[in-house]
Simulated assay, not measured.
Amino acid sequence: MPFWDNARFACVVLVVMGHGVQRLTYDSDISYAFYLWIYAFHMPAFAIISGYFSKAASPTRRQMARVITDILVPYVIFEGLWTLTKWLVEGRADPNLTQPSWTLWFLLALGIFRLVLPYLALLRWPLVWALAISIGVGYLSNVNSTFSLSRTLGLLFFFTLGWWMRERDIVQRLRLIDFRPWWLRVCAVAVLATWAFTCWRWLPFWDDIDLRYWFFYDDSYSDLTADQWWAGGIRLSLIALALLLSACFFALMPRRALRWTTLGQYTMYVYLLHSFVLYPFRESGALRDLDPTWLWLPLVTLLSAAIAVLLAWRPVRRLFRPLIEPRPRWMFADPSLSSRTGHRSDPTGSRRGAGG
Protein backbone atom coordinates (compact mmCIF):
# COMPACT_ATOMS: atom_id res chain seq x y z
CA MET A 1 0.00 0.00 0.00
CA PRO A 2 1.58 3.31 -1.09
CA PHE A 3 0.39 5.06 2.06
CA TRP A 4 2.93 3.32 4.28
CA ASP A 5 5.88 3.98 1.98
CA ASN A 6 4.82 7.63 1.77
CA ALA A 7 4.68 7.85 5.56
CA ARG A 8 7.97 6.00 5.97
CA PHE A 9 9.82 8.34 3.62
CA ALA A 10 8.21 11.44 5.14
CA CYS A 11 9.45 10.28 8.56
CA VAL A 12 13.01 9.86 7.41
CA VAL A 13 12.89 13.28 5.72
CA LEU A 14 11.90 14.74 9.10
CA VAL A 15 14.86 12.91 10.65
CA VAL A 16 17.26 14.57 8.19
CA MET A 17 15.58 17.96 8.69
CA GLY A 18 15.84 17.67 12.46
CA HIS A 19 19.55 16.90 12.27
CA GLY A 20 20.06 19.54 9.59
CA VAL A 21 18.58 22.44 11.55
CA GLN A 22 20.02 21.38 14.92
CA ARG A 23 22.98 23.77 14.70
CA LEU A 24 20.65 26.62 13.71
CA THR A 25 18.81 26.30 17.01
CA TYR A 26 21.70 27.92 18.91
CA ASP A 27 21.20 31.23 17.10
CA SER A 28 17.54 31.24 16.04
CA ASP A 29 14.38 30.89 18.12
CA ILE A 30 12.31 30.00 15.07
CA SER A 31 14.74 27.21 14.20
CA TYR A 32 14.59 25.98 17.79
CA ALA A 33 10.79 25.93 17.69
CA PHE A 34 10.86 24.03 14.39
CA TYR A 35 13.28 21.54 15.93
CA LEU A 36 10.94 20.94 18.89
CA TRP A 37 8.00 20.60 16.50
CA ILE A 38 9.76 17.79 14.63
CA TYR A 39 11.14 15.96 17.64
CA ALA A 40 7.78 15.76 19.39
CA PHE A 41 6.57 13.04 17.02
CA HIS A 42 8.90 12.00 14.19
CA MET A 43 10.62 9.05 15.91
CA PRO A 44 7.42 7.87 17.64
CA ALA A 45 5.75 7.84 14.21
CA PHE A 46 8.72 5.94 12.77
CA ALA A 47 8.47 3.39 15.61
CA ILE A 48 4.73 2.95 15.01
CA ILE A 49 5.34 2.19 11.33
CA SER A 50 8.12 -0.26 12.19
CA GLY A 51 5.91 -2.02 14.71
CA TYR A 52 3.02 -2.21 12.26
CA PHE A 53 5.12 -4.40 9.97
CA SER A 54 6.56 -6.60 12.71
CA LYS A 55 5.44 -10.05 13.77
CA ALA A 56 5.33 -11.47 17.27
CA ALA A 57 5.35 -15.13 16.22
CA SER A 58 8.42 -17.26 16.75
CA PRO A 59 10.85 -16.22 14.01
CA THR A 60 11.94 -18.57 11.28
CA ARG A 61 15.62 -19.31 10.76
CA ARG A 62 15.68 -16.92 7.81
CA GLN A 63 14.06 -14.15 9.84
CA MET A 64 16.61 -14.69 12.60
CA ALA A 65 19.39 -14.49 10.02
CA ARG A 66 17.99 -11.19 8.74
CA VAL A 67 18.25 -9.64 12.18
CA ILE A 68 21.96 -10.36 11.88
CA THR A 69 22.37 -9.27 8.25
CA ASP A 70 19.96 -6.30 8.26
CA ILE A 71 20.63 -4.88 11.73
CA LEU A 72 23.68 -6.21 13.56
CA VAL A 73 26.17 -6.38 10.69
CA PRO A 74 25.32 -2.88 9.36
CA TYR A 75 25.58 -1.60 12.93
CA VAL A 76 29.11 -2.97 13.30
CA ILE A 77 30.08 -1.68 9.84
CA PHE A 78 28.86 1.85 10.48
CA GLU A 79 30.29 1.99 13.98
CA GLY A 80 33.62 1.16 12.36
CA LEU A 81 33.11 3.91 9.78
CA TRP A 82 32.29 6.42 12.52
CA THR A 83 35.37 5.42 14.48
CA LEU A 84 37.50 5.97 11.38
CA THR A 85 35.79 9.29 10.62
CA LYS A 86 36.35 10.64 14.12
CA TRP A 87 39.97 9.55 14.04
CA LEU A 88 40.60 11.26 10.68
CA VAL A 89 38.70 14.47 11.48
CA GLU A 90 39.03 14.87 15.23
CA GLY A 91 42.23 12.94 15.85
CA ARG A 92 40.60 10.63 18.36
CA ALA A 93 39.25 7.12 18.16
CA ASP A 94 37.30 5.44 20.94
CA PRO A 95 35.68 2.37 19.40
CA ASN A 96 32.92 1.11 21.64
CA LEU A 97 30.12 -1.00 20.23
CA THR A 98 28.11 -0.57 23.42
CA GLN A 99 27.69 3.18 22.80
CA PRO A 100 25.96 3.80 19.43
CA SER A 101 27.28 6.72 17.42
CA TRP A 102 24.77 9.44 16.59
CA THR A 103 21.92 7.85 14.56
CA LEU A 104 22.95 4.22 14.99
CA TRP A 105 20.90 3.84 18.17
CA PHE A 106 17.80 3.18 16.04
CA LEU A 107 19.34 0.09 14.47
CA LEU A 108 19.87 -1.41 17.90
CA ALA A 109 16.38 -0.31 18.91
CA LEU A 110 14.85 -2.20 15.99
CA GLY A 111 16.75 -5.32 17.01
CA ILE A 112 15.70 -5.04 20.66
CA PHE A 113 12.09 -4.31 19.68
CA ARG A 114 12.00 -7.56 17.73
CA LEU A 115 13.46 -9.51 20.63
CA VAL A 116 11.01 -8.10 23.18
CA LEU A 117 7.82 -8.17 21.10
CA PRO A 118 7.16 -11.95 21.21
CA TYR A 119 7.26 -11.83 25.01
CA LEU A 120 4.95 -8.81 25.20
CA ALA A 121 2.55 -10.56 22.83
CA LEU A 122 2.18 -13.41 25.34
CA LEU A 123 0.73 -11.06 27.94
CA ARG A 124 -2.92 -10.20 28.33
CA TRP A 125 -2.51 -6.43 27.99
CA PRO A 126 0.64 -5.88 25.89
CA LEU A 127 -0.02 -2.18 25.35
CA VAL A 128 -0.40 -1.57 29.08
CA TRP A 129 2.82 -3.42 29.84
CA ALA A 130 4.68 -1.59 27.06
CA LEU A 131 3.41 1.75 28.37
CA ALA A 132 4.46 0.84 31.90
CA ILE A 133 7.95 -0.03 30.64
CA SER A 134 8.23 3.17 28.60
CA ILE A 135 7.30 5.29 31.60
CA GLY A 136 8.95 3.20 34.30
CA VAL A 137 12.39 3.05 32.68
CA GLY A 138 12.76 6.77 33.26
CA TYR A 139 12.89 6.16 37.00
CA LEU A 140 15.94 3.88 36.62
CA SER A 141 19.10 5.95 36.41
CA ASN A 142 21.21 2.82 35.89
CA VAL A 143 19.45 2.14 32.57
CA ASN A 144 21.35 4.42 30.22
CA SER A 145 22.51 4.78 26.62
CA THR A 146 24.51 1.55 26.73
CA PHE A 147 23.25 -0.37 23.70
CA SER A 148 20.69 2.49 23.46
CA LEU A 149 18.59 0.59 26.01
CA SER A 150 17.03 3.61 27.75
CA ARG A 151 15.90 5.17 24.48
CA THR A 152 14.69 1.86 23.10
CA LEU A 153 12.55 1.09 26.13
CA GLY A 154 11.32 4.68 26.21
CA LEU A 155 9.95 4.26 22.67
CA LEU A 156 8.78 0.68 23.15
CA PHE A 157 5.14 1.69 23.56
CA PHE A 158 4.99 3.23 20.08
CA PHE A 159 6.49 0.15 18.44
CA THR A 160 4.10 -2.12 20.35
CA LEU A 161 1.17 0.09 19.39
CA GLY A 162 2.02 -0.30 15.71
CA TRP A 163 2.14 -4.08 16.06
CA TRP A 164 -1.10 -4.12 18.08
CA MET A 165 -2.93 -2.11 15.42
CA ARG A 166 -1.87 -4.60 12.76
CA GLU A 167 -2.61 -7.60 14.97
CA ARG A 168 -6.14 -6.35 15.71
CA ASP A 169 -6.63 -5.12 12.13
CA ILE A 170 -7.51 -1.70 13.54
CA VAL A 171 -6.54 0.23 10.42
CA GLN A 172 -8.72 -1.84 8.10
CA ARG A 173 -11.71 -2.29 10.41
CA LEU A 174 -11.93 1.41 11.25
CA ARG A 175 -10.94 2.47 7.71
CA LEU A 176 -8.30 4.79 9.15
CA ILE A 177 -6.59 5.18 5.78
CA ASP A 178 -9.66 5.33 3.55
CA PHE A 179 -11.83 7.55 5.73
CA ARG A 180 -10.25 10.99 5.60
CA PRO A 181 -12.83 13.68 4.88
CA TRP A 182 -11.75 17.23 4.31
CA TRP A 183 -12.67 18.33 7.82
CA LEU A 184 -10.39 15.69 9.32
CA ARG A 185 -7.45 16.95 7.30
CA VAL A 186 -8.26 20.53 8.28
CA CYS A 187 -8.27 19.48 11.94
CA ALA A 188 -4.93 17.70 11.46
CA VAL A 189 -3.37 20.83 9.98
CA ALA A 190 -4.84 22.92 12.79
CA VAL A 191 -3.40 20.64 15.48
CA LEU A 192 0.07 20.59 13.91
CA ALA A 193 -0.05 24.37 13.46
CA THR A 194 -1.16 24.84 17.07
CA TRP A 195 1.77 22.75 18.28
CA ALA A 196 4.13 24.82 16.10
CA PHE A 197 2.75 28.04 17.62
CA THR A 198 3.05 26.55 21.12
CA CYS A 199 6.70 25.65 20.51
CA TRP A 200 7.47 29.22 19.43
CA ARG A 201 5.29 31.15 21.88
CA TRP A 202 6.62 29.50 25.05
CA LEU A 203 10.10 28.70 23.81
CA PRO A 204 11.94 30.16 26.86
CA PHE A 205 9.92 27.88 29.13
CA TRP A 206 10.61 24.81 26.97
CA ASP A 207 14.28 25.71 27.04
CA ASP A 208 14.28 26.10 30.81
CA ILE A 209 12.85 22.61 31.34
CA ASP A 210 15.10 21.06 28.65
CA LEU A 211 12.13 19.85 26.63
CA ARG A 212 14.33 18.77 23.72
CA TYR A 213 15.98 16.15 25.93
CA TRP A 214 12.63 14.84 27.08
CA PHE A 215 11.80 14.17 23.44
CA PHE A 216 14.86 11.95 23.11
CA TYR A 217 13.36 9.40 25.56
CA ASP A 218 16.96 8.74 26.57
CA ASP A 219 17.79 10.34 29.92
CA SER A 220 16.40 9.26 33.26
CA TYR A 221 14.09 11.64 35.08
CA SER A 222 16.79 12.40 37.64
CA ASP A 223 19.17 13.41 34.83
CA LEU A 224 16.44 15.72 33.56
CA THR A 225 16.22 17.31 37.04
CA ALA A 226 12.76 15.84 37.54
CA ASP A 227 13.36 13.08 40.05
CA GLN A 228 9.99 13.53 41.79
CA TRP A 229 7.50 10.67 41.89
CA TRP A 230 5.27 12.42 39.36
CA ALA A 231 7.99 12.69 36.69
CA GLY A 232 6.48 9.74 34.84
CA GLY A 233 3.39 11.87 34.30
CA ILE A 234 5.47 14.21 32.15
CA ARG A 235 6.56 11.36 29.90
CA LEU A 236 2.98 10.10 29.75
CA SER A 237 1.89 13.56 28.59
CA LEU A 238 4.62 13.61 25.94
CA ILE A 239 3.57 10.14 24.77
CA ALA A 240 -0.03 11.40 24.43
CA LEU A 241 1.24 14.45 22.53
CA ALA A 242 3.30 12.24 20.20
CA LEU A 243 0.28 10.03 19.51
CA LEU A 244 -1.89 13.04 18.69
CA LEU A 245 0.70 14.62 16.39
CA SER A 246 1.50 11.27 14.75
CA ALA A 247 -2.20 10.72 14.06
CA CYS A 248 -2.37 14.15 12.40
CA PHE A 249 0.80 13.38 10.44
CA PHE A 250 -0.67 10.09 9.17
CA ALA A 251 -3.98 11.80 8.34
CA LEU A 252 -2.15 14.10 5.91
CA MET A 253 -0.15 11.36 4.17
CA PRO A 254 -1.14 10.76 0.53
CA ARG A 255 -2.75 7.38 -0.09
CA ARG A 256 -1.84 7.08 -3.75
CA ALA A 257 1.51 6.29 -5.31
CA LEU A 258 3.61 9.38 -6.03
CA ARG A 259 6.97 9.87 -7.71
CA TRP A 260 8.76 9.55 -4.39
CA THR A 261 6.68 6.71 -2.94
CA THR A 262 9.16 3.95 -3.78
CA LEU A 263 11.87 5.87 -1.92
CA GLY A 264 10.06 4.87 1.27
CA GLN A 265 11.34 1.33 0.70
CA TYR A 266 14.93 2.51 1.23
CA THR A 267 14.73 4.57 4.40
CA MET A 268 17.77 2.87 5.95
CA TYR A 269 19.97 4.24 3.17
CA VAL A 270 18.86 7.75 4.07
CA TYR A 271 18.97 7.13 7.80
CA LEU A 272 22.45 5.64 7.90
CA LEU A 273 24.13 7.84 5.28
CA HIS A 274 22.73 11.31 5.94
CA SER A 275 24.74 11.77 9.14
CA PHE A 276 27.98 11.48 7.13
CA VAL A 277 26.71 14.17 4.74
CA LEU A 278 25.76 16.52 7.57
CA TYR A 279 28.78 15.82 9.75
CA PRO A 280 31.19 18.26 7.99
CA PHE A 281 28.64 21.08 8.18
CA ARG A 282 27.87 20.46 11.84
CA GLU A 283 31.49 20.11 12.98
CA SER A 284 32.93 22.94 10.87
CA GLY A 285 30.55 25.53 12.31
CA ALA A 286 29.19 26.33 8.86
CA LEU A 287 25.64 26.22 10.23
CA ARG A 288 26.27 28.72 13.02
CA ASP A 289 25.56 32.47 13.03
CA LEU A 290 23.50 32.26 9.83
CA ASP A 291 21.34 35.32 9.36
CA PRO A 292 18.61 36.06 8.38
CA THR A 293 16.65 33.06 9.67
CA TRP A 294 13.87 33.57 7.13
CA LEU A 295 16.39 32.69 4.43
CA TRP A 296 18.58 30.04 6.02
CA LEU A 297 15.98 27.94 7.81
CA PRO A 298 13.92 27.26 4.65
CA LEU A 299 17.14 26.73 2.69
CA VAL A 300 18.56 24.19 5.15
CA THR A 301 15.15 22.50 5.33
CA LEU A 302 14.94 22.17 1.55
CA LEU A 303 18.53 20.96 1.32
CA SER A 304 17.76 18.33 3.97
CA ALA A 305 14.83 17.07 1.91
CA ALA A 306 17.06 17.02 -1.19
CA ILE A 307 19.69 15.00 0.71
CA ALA A 308 17.04 12.45 1.66
CA VAL A 309 15.93 12.06 -1.95
CA LEU A 310 19.52 11.83 -3.19
CA LEU A 311 20.53 9.15 -0.70
CA ALA A 312 17.55 7.00 -1.73
CA TRP A 313 18.48 7.39 -5.42
CA ARG A 314 19.26 4.14 -7.22
CA PRO A 315 22.94 4.86 -8.06
CA VAL A 316 23.61 5.71 -4.42
CA ARG A 317 21.86 2.53 -3.30
CA ARG A 318 23.94 0.43 -5.67
CA LEU A 319 27.13 1.98 -4.36
CA PHE A 320 26.37 1.51 -0.67
CA ARG A 321 24.31 -1.68 -0.76
CA PRO A 322 27.24 -3.88 0.39
CA LEU A 323 27.43 -1.77 3.56
CA ILE A 324 23.72 -1.32 4.27
CA GLU A 325 22.35 -4.62 2.97
CA PRO A 326 25.30 -7.00 3.37
CA ARG A 327 24.95 -10.71 2.72
CA PRO A 328 27.85 -12.30 4.62
CA ARG A 329 27.35 -15.91 3.58
CA TRP A 330 30.57 -16.91 5.34
CA MET A 331 29.04 -16.18 8.74
CA PHE A 332 26.35 -18.85 8.55
CA ALA A 333 26.50 -22.59 8.88
CA ASP A 334 23.80 -22.58 6.19
CA PRO A 335 24.93 -19.94 3.64
CA SER A 336 21.52 -19.96 1.96
CA LEU A 337 20.15 -18.01 4.96
CA SER A 338 21.86 -14.89 3.62
CA SER A 339 20.94 -15.43 -0.02
CA ARG A 340 19.33 -12.69 -2.07
CA THR A 341 16.47 -14.84 -3.32
CA GLY A 342 12.92 -13.76 -2.58
CA HIS A 343 11.95 -10.31 -1.39
CA ARG A 344 14.25 -7.84 0.30
CA SER A 345 13.21 -5.90 3.36
CA ASP A 346 14.03 -2.58 4.89
CA PRO A 347 14.58 -3.08 8.66
CA THR A 348 11.53 -0.88 9.25
CA GLY A 349 9.35 -3.43 7.45
CA SER A 350 9.01 -2.29 3.85
CA ARG A 351 9.06 -5.19 1.39
CA ARG A 352 10.26 -5.04 -2.19
CA GLY A 353 11.34 -7.39 -4.94
CA ALA A 354 14.70 -9.14 -4.85
CA GLY A 355 16.00 -6.78 -7.50
CA GLY A 356 15.16 -3.64 -5.47
Score class of each variant (00 low, 15 high):
residue 80 G to W: 03
residue 82 W to R: 03
residue 84 L to Q: 07
residue 84 L to R: 01
residue 85 T to H: 12
residue 85 T to S: 11
residue 86 K to C: 13
residue 86 K to R: 14
residue 87 W to T: 04
residue 87 W to Q: 11
residue 87 W to E: 12
residue 87 W to M: 10
residue 88 L to V: 14
residue 89 V to T: 06
residue 92 R to G: 08
residue 94 D to W: 12
residue 94 D to G: 04
residue 96 N to Q: 14
residue 96 N to G: 11
residue 96 N to K: 12
residue 96 N to I: 01
residue 97 L to I: 11
residue 97 L to C: 07
residue 98 T to W: 14
residue 98 T to M: 14
residue 100 P to T: 06
residue 100 P to Q: 07
residue 101 S to D: 15
residue 102 W to P: 01
residue 103 T to N: 11
residue 103 T to R: 01
residue 104 L to V: 00
residue 105 W to F: 13
residue 108 L to A: 01
residue 110 L to F: 05
residue 111 G to T: 00
residue 111 G to R: 04
residue 112 I to W: 15
residue 112 I to S: 06
residue 112 I to E: 13
residue 113 F to S: 07
residue 113 F to G: 06
residue 113 F to W: 15
residue 114 R to I: 05
residue 114 R to N: 12
residue 115 L to V: 10
residue 116 V to L: 10
residue 117 L to F: 13
residue 117 L to P: 05
residue 117 L to T: 10
residue 117 L to G: 08
residue 119 Y to T: 01
residue 119 Y to F: 14
residue 119 Y to W: 13
residue 120 L to G: 06
residue 121 A to M: 06
residue 122 L to S: 10
residue 122 L to Y: 04
residue 123 L to P: 01
residue 125 W to A: 13
residue 125 W to P: 00
residue 127 L to F: 12
residue 128 V to N: 00
residue 128 V to Y: 08
residue 128 V to A: 14
residue 130 A to M: 05
residue 130 A to P: 02
residue 131 L to H: 07
residue 132 A to Q: 02
residue 132 A to C: 08
residue 133 I to Y: 07
residue 133 I to M: 04
residue 133 I to W: 06
residue 133 I to E: 05
residue 134 S to K: 05
residue 134 S to Q: 04
residue 134 S to C: 02
residue 139 Y to Q: 06
residue 140 L to T: 09
residue 140 L to A: 15
residue 140 L to D: 09
residue 141 S to R: 14
residue 142 N to A: 14
residue 142 N to M: 09
residue 143 V to Q: 09
residue 144 N to A: 15
residue 144 N to C: 10
residue 145 S to Y: 15
residue 146 T to D: 12
residue 147 F to M: 08
residue 147 F to G: 01
residue 148 S to C: 08
residue 148 S to D: 08
residue 149 L to T: 09
residue 149 L to E: 01
residue 150 S to H: 15
residue 150 S to Q: 14
residue 151 R to I: 02
residue 151 R to W: 05
residue 151 R to A: 09
